[in-house]
Design a protein around this nucleic acid. Structure first.
Length: 950
RNA sequence: GGGCGGUUAGCUCAGCGGUAGAGCGCUUCGUUUACACCGAAGAUGUCGGGGGUUCGAUCCCCUCACCGCCCACCA
C-alpha cells in the first residue's frame, strides 16, 4: 500500500542505487548494440566545485534528453567528467594554505604544491559528481573522466605538438592581459570591465581651492582609479609652453615615449614633429600625428605608453616608438623609471607621480571620471596590459572551418539567434593566449636549449632527440646569446632562470622545460573526443563521435563551444556536435544573478532536501523557455512538489481500486466511451511531449504532461471513472481498471525524463501482476500511439464535462448548498443526448450532485436554466433560488453571446474578409455565428420563462 | 559606440496572424472513502506608446520609451 504522501528523501537514494546496481545508464549495453547512438558530453564542472542552480538546470535538460532517447531505444552515452579548472582550483588551494598560515607555493616549490592540489582534488573532487547523482543525472558513470587524466593529458600533448608543427601554435612577445596578483597572463575573455567612479575634483590656479593631497589620497583609498588627470608636458624648444595630455593612469607617464595628436587637429598642427620633455623623467619624446588621437576627448592630445596600453602599443608600432616596460610581474615599478619610483606599487606610484607633478605646477586639473577598468574575473585584481612572451594559438585560422561548419548547417544552434553571436566573435577572433604562469594544469611540452630555442615534443626524450639533431648541425649552443625563449621572459618576471643541472643525454647540453601550463579551456576544447579515447582510434570514438547535442549556457559560447568547434573540426575533421542547445541563466526571483556575496543563492541541494529532486527538475524544465532567463522561486518548486504528490495519490487511487496492468492490454480495443476518450487524450499528450523534447521546448513538453496528468487524468477521467468502478457492470469495471493502469503507465513514461525518481518508484510498486516487472522504467519504451483518437468519444465526454461544469457553476452562483442534491431536467434533448444522459446517469448524478434526471417537454417553473447545444438543462430550484438573480445571470450570458456575435458580424459584414480570408476561416465564423444565435434564442426563451415566474 | 533580448492578469512567465493562457497569489464555498501538498466556483488584462503592412495584428515591419545582457572602450 502506498503511503499518503510522497516522501522523496526515502525513495531517491534507493532508486539511485537500483539504477547503479543494474548499470542502467551504461553506454553500449548489449540490448542496444544495433541501436543508433545518442551522445552528450557533459560540460565538465570544476572538479572542486559544488552544484549550483546553473548546473542543476544544465544537467536536468541533458538528463531529459538522455532519458528520452534511451526510452526511444537509442544507445545513449552521456559522458560525465570534471575539469581541473586551473586558476580556480589553484586559487582555492593557495587560499587554503594562506588561511592555515602555511608557506606560500613559491616557498614550497612546484612539486610539493602540486601534491597539495592533487590531495585537495582527491578530497573534494567527488563532491560535485555525487551532487549530480542526487539530481538524477543518468550519466554513464563508469566512464567518468578528468581533464588531467592520463589519457586526456596525452590528447593535450598531441594537440599542442601537432598545432605547433603546423605553425598554428607559436610564441609571441606582445601585450597581454596580466594579472599581477596571480602573476599570470589571462585571456581576453577572462577580463571583466568594471565601472569605477572617482570623487575628487581640483583645478590649478584656483586660489580658493588649493591642492589637497589628503583629500585625493582618501578618494584614491576608496578607489585607485576613477579620475582623469590633465598633465602639462613642456615643449623642448620653449619650456614655457606646454602640451596638455589627459590620463587616468598617471604612473604610466614614466613610460611615455610620445604624445599623439590628430593629424587634422588645427590646435596642434604646428607641434607635430616637435619634442617635449617628459617631466620627472627628462626623456625627450616626440609629438606624433596619429588618427588614434580623438580631438573630442580630453585635451585632444594623448600620451603614448606603448608598453602598457593596447591602443598605445599599436600607435607605437606605427611610429616605431620605443617600448619601455616600467612594471615588474607584481605591477611594481622597475629599474626603467627614476630611482625615486622604483619598487613602488603601481597605485602608490600613481599618488607619488601626481603629487610630484602638482609640486612642479604641471597638473592643470584633476576630474572625477567614471570609466571602465579591466579586472580579472577570477580574483578581481586590476589587470595590467604587460609585455611578455607567451604561447598563442592562431585562432583565426582554426576558426575558418568552425565558422563554415555552422554556415553549412553541420552544427546548428538552438535557439538560432546564437549563431549570430558565434559568427560575430569567430570572425573577429584574436590570437588565443594559451600559456598561464600557474602550476596547476597541463605543463607546456616545450623544452629550451641553452640558447633559448624551444623544442616542442610529446616527451622530454623526443625533445632531446630533436635538440641533439638541431645542435649537431648548428653552431654550438653553449655560446648562445640567450635570445628569445623562456629565460628572457622569466627574468622579465623577476624569476631567475634555473639551469637544469641534471644531464639529459650525451649532447653536452641540458634542456629546461617551459614552466608554464596551458589555459584550462585548451583541454576542455578537446573534451568531445579526448573523453572517447582520442588520439587512440577507439571503438567508442568511432561510435559516439560526433556527439548529438551539446547543452550549455550562453556565457561559455566563446570560452568553450567555439573552441570545441575549432579543435573538433581541425583534428577530427568533423564537427563535435550536431546541435548546440543554449539555455538560459538561472536568476533569483528579482532577476539578479545569484552570487554568494549577494546572498541570494538558492542551493539546489537544499531544495532537493526540502522538495525532492523531481520537483526541482520539473520546475527548471517547465521554466526553460527558449531565449529567456529563468527566475526561480521556491513557491514554484513547491507547486511542482505538489504535482508529484498529486501523481502519487492518483497511483494510490489506482492501487486501492485494484487497477492492475493487464498483459497485452490494447488501448485500441477498449469499448467504454470514457476509456476510448482517455486513450485519445493519451495519444495527443504523448505526441505533444515528444514534439516538445525533440524541439528542445522543454517547457512545452513539461506543461503538456502536467496538464494531462492533473487536469485531464485526475480531475476528469478518474472522477468520471468512479461510478463505473463502484458500479455493478463487471465488464466495464474490468476494462476501466485495466485502462486506468495503462494510462498511469503512460503518464509515468512521459513524465520520467522530467521526474525520474517518483516515476521509477511507482513503476516498480504498481506491478502486481506481471507486465515488464523486471524492467526499469528508465529502460522501458517511449509511448508512441496512432489511431487512438475517437471523435465520437471526445464529443460525448466533452458534453458530460460541459454539463457537469455548467451545473456546478450555476449551483455555486445560485448559492445552492453544496450538500443538497437537486433534480435535473433535460429539455429538448434529442435521442443522442438522451442516450448519453442515460449512459452516464451515475456520473452526472455524482459529479453534479443530482438526484433525478428527467426529460420533460418544458422546464419546470422556477428553474435555473443552462443552454447546452440543442438541450436546455433545467435545475428546478423554485424556492431555493432567487429568480431575480437568475434573470440577471441569464441576461449576462445573453450579453456575452451578443458581444461575440457583434465581433463575428463585423468580420462577415466585411466584403474584403469574405473575398480574401481563407474559406475555412469564413466558414468557421459562420458556424460560430449560428451557434451563438442558437444560444441567444435559447437564452431568450429561458428569460421569458423566468419573467413569467416572477 | 556595436549587437542581442525583454515589456501580456497582483507576482513570475507561456503563447501567437482569426475565441487572450498557466502557475502562484486573491475571493467564496467544501470533512462526497486517492489527494487540504486537495476539490469546486469566481474576479482581474487599453497584450509598453505611436505609425505601417494585412480582410484581420498581442503576434509581422518601422519608430519611440523604459529595462536587462553581451562585445568594444583605462585620454
Amino acid at each position: 500500500m502506498l503511503e499518503k504522501t510522497y516522501q522523496p528523501a526515502t525513495i531517491e537514494a534507493r532508486i539511485h542505487e537500483e539504477w547503479t546496481r543494474t548499470e542502467a545508464f551504461k553506454a553500449g549495453r548489449p540490448d542496444r548494440a544495433k541501436s543508433l547512438p545518442y551522445t552528450i558530453v557533459i560540460p565538465p564542472p570544476n572538479v572542486t566545485g559544488s552544484l549550483h542552480m546553473g548546473h542543476a538546470l544544465n544537467n536536468t535538460l541533458q538528463d531529459v534528453l538522455c532519458r528520452f532517447e534511451r526510452m526511444r531505444g537509442k544507445d545513449v552515452l552521456w559522458q560525465p567528467g570534471t575539469d581541473h579548472a586551473g586558476i580556480a582550483t589553484q586559487l582555492v588551494v593557495e587560499r587554503q594554505m594562506m588561511e592555515r598560515q602555511e608557506p606560500d607555493r613559491r616557498s614550497i616549490g612546484r612539486e610539493k604544491f602540486l601534491e597539495k592540489v592533487w590531495a585537495w582534488k582527491a578530497e573534494s573532487g567527488g563532491t560535485i559528481i555525487n551532487q549530480l547523482k542526487r539530481l538524477g543525472a543518468s550519466c554513464d558513470w563508469s566512464r567518468e573522466r578528468f581533464t588531467m587524466d592520463e589519457g586526456l593529458s596525452k590528447a593535450v600533448l598531441k594537440v599542442f605538438v601537432d598545432l605547433h608543427a603546423q605553425g598554428l601554435i607559436y610564441k609571441d612577445n606582445r601585450l597581454v592581459n596580466w594579472d599581477p596578483e596571480f602573476q599570470s597572463a589571462i585571456s581576453d575573455l577572462e577580463v571583466e570591465m568594471l565601472e569605477v567612479k572617482g570623487s575628487f575634483n581640483w583645478t590649478a590656479g584656483d586660489p580658493d581651492k588649493p591642492f589637497d593631497a589628503k583629500a585625493l589620497g582618501k578618494a584614491l583609498d576608496r578607489n585607485p582609479s576613477g579620475h582623469l588627470y590633465h598633465f602639462k608636458y613642456p615643449l623642448k624648444d620653449d619650456p614655457a609652453k606646454f602640451i596638455v595630455v589627459a590620463t587616468t593612469r598617471p604612473e604610466t607617464m614614466l613610460g611615455d615615449t610620445a604624445v599623439a595628436v590628430h593629424p587634422e587637429d588645427a590646435r596642434y598642427k604646428d607641434l607635430v614633429g616637435k619634442l617635449v620633455v617628459l617631466p620627472l623623467v627628462g626623456r625627450e619624446i616626440p609629438i606624433v600625428a596619429d588618427e588614434y588621437s580623438d580631438p573630442e576627448k580630453g585635451s585632444g592630445a594623448v600620451k603614448i605608453t606603448p608598453a602598457h596600453d593596447f591602443n598605445d602599443y599599436e600607435v607605437g608600432r606605427r611610429h616605431k616608438l620605443a617600448l619601455i616596460n616600467i612594471l615588474d610581474a607584481k605591477a611594481q615599478l622597475n629599474e626603467n623609471v627614476p630611482e625615486a619610483y622604483r619598487g613602488l606599487d603601481r597605485f602608490a606610484a600613481r599618488r607619488r607621480v601626481v603629487a610630484d607633478l602638482v609640486a612642479l605646477g604641471l597638473v592643470e586639473k584633476i576630474e572625477a571620471h567614471t570609466h571602465a577598468v579591466p579586472h580579472a574575473q577570477r580574483g578581481n585584481a586590476v589587470v595590467e596590459p604587460w609585455l611578455t612572451e607567451q604561447w598563442y594559438v592562431n585562432a583565426a585560422e582554426l576558426a575558418k572551418k568552425a565558422i563554415a561548419a555552422v554556415e553549412d548547417g553541420k552544427t546548428r544552434f538552438v535557439p538560432k539567434n546564437w549563431e549570430k553571436t558565434y559568427f560575430e566573435w569567430m570572425r573577429n577572433i584574436q590570437p588565443w593566449c594559451i600559456s598561464r604562469q600557474l602550476w596547476w594544469g597541463h605543463q607546456i611540452p616545450a623544452w629550451y636549449g641553452p640558447d633559448g630555442k624551444a623544442f616542442v615534443a610529446e616527451s622530454e626524450e623526443a625533445a632531446y632527440a630533436a635538440a641533439k639533431k638541431h645542435y649537431a648541425s648548428s653552431p654550438s649552443p653553449l655560446v648562445g646569446e640567450g635570445k628569445g625563449g623562456g629565460d628572457r621572459r622569466a627574468s622579465a618576471r623577476g624569476i631567475p632562470p634555473t639551469p637544469n643541472p641534471s644531464p639529459q643525454g650525451g649532447g653536452g647540453f641540458t634542456l629546461k622545460r617551459d614552466e608554464d601550463v596551458l589555459d584550462t579551456w585548451f583541454s576542455s576544447a578537446l573534451w568531445p573526443f579526448s573523453t572517447l579515447g582520442w588520439p587512440e582510434q577507439t571503438k567508442e570514438l568511432k561510435r559516439y563521435y560526433p556527439t548529438s547535442t551539446l547543452v550549455t549556457a550562453f556565457d561559455i559560447i566563446f570560452f568553450w563551444v567555439a573552441r570545441m568547434m575549432m579543435m573538433g573540426t581541425h583534428f577530427m575533421k568533423e564537427v563535435p556536435f550536431h546541435d548546440v542547445y543554449i539555455h538560459a541563466l538561472v536568476l533569483d526571483e528579482k532577476g539578479q544573478k545569484m552570487s554568494k556575496t549577494k546572498g541570494n543563492v538558492l542551493d539546489p541541494l537544499g531544495v532537493i532536501d526540502r522538495y525532492g529532486a523531481d520537483a526541482l527538475r520539473f520546475t527548471l524544465a517547465a521554466m526553460a523557455a527558449q531565449g529567456r532567463n529563468i527566475r526561480i522561486s521556491e513557491q514554484r518548486i513547491e507547486g511542482y512538489r505538489n504535482f508529484a504528490t498529486k501523481l502519487w495519490n492518483a497511483a494510490r487511487f489506482a492501487e486501492m481500486n485494484e487497477c492492475v496492468r493487464q498483459k497485452g492490454f490494447d488501448p485500441k480495443a477498449v469499448e467504454e466511451t470514457l476509456n476510448r476518450w482517455i486513450a485519445g487524450e493519451v495519444e495527443r499528450t504523448a505526441a505533444a511531449v515528444t514534439a516538445g523534447i525533440e524541439a528542445y521546448k522543454f517547457n512545452e513538453a513539461a506543461t503538456a504532461i502536467y496538464e494531462f496528468t492533473w487536469g485531464t487524468f485526475c480531475d476528469w477521467y478518474l472522477e468520471l471513472a468512479k461510478p463505473i468502478l463502484n458500479g455493478e457492470e463487471v465488464e466495464a469495471k474490468a476494462e476501466t481498471r485495466a485502462t486506468i493502469a495503462w494510462v498511469l503507465d503512460q503518464v509515468l513514461k512521459l513524465l520520467h525524463p522530467f521526474m525520474p525518481f517518483i516515476t521509477e518508484e511507482l513503476w516498480a510498486r504498481l506491478v502486481e501482476v506481471g507486465v515488464e516487472r523486471d524492467n526499469l522504467l528508465c529502460l522501458s519504451t517511449w509511448p508512441v500511439f496512432e489511431g487512438l483518437a475517437d471523435a465520437d468519444a471526445d464529443e460525448e465526454i466533452g458534453w458530460i464535462v460541459k454539463l457537469v461544469s455548467e451545473v456546478r457553476s450555476v449551483r455555486s452562483e445560485m448559492n445552492v448548498p453544496p450538500g443538497a442534491k437537486v433534480p435535473l431536467a433535460l429539455v429538448g434533448a434529442g435521442k443522442a443526448t438522451r442516450a448519453r444522459a442515460d449512459h452516464h446517469e451515475d456520473t452526472i448524478k455524482r459529479l453534479a450532485r443530482i438526484d433525478t434526471i428527467s426529460f420533460p417537454k418544458a422546464p419546470p417553473k422556477g428553474s435555473a436554466q443552462i443552454v447546452l447545444g440543442d438541450t436546455t438543462a433545467a435545475l428546478p430550484l423554485a424556492g431555493v433560488i432567487d429568480m431575480a438573480v437568475e434573470r440577471v445571470r441569464l441576461e449576462r450570458e445573453t450579453e456575452k453571446a451578443k458581444a461575440e456575435i457583434r465581433k463575428v458580424d463585423a468580420k462577415l459584414g466585411n466584403e474584403s474578409f469574405l473575398a480574401k480570408a481563407p474559406p475555412e476561416v469564413v466558414e468557421e465564423n459562420r458556424e460560430r455565428k449560428a451557434e451563438f444565435e442558437a444560444l441567444i434564442a435559447k437564452l431568450q426563451a429561458a428569460l421569458r420563462r423566468v419573467e413569467a415566474a416572477l
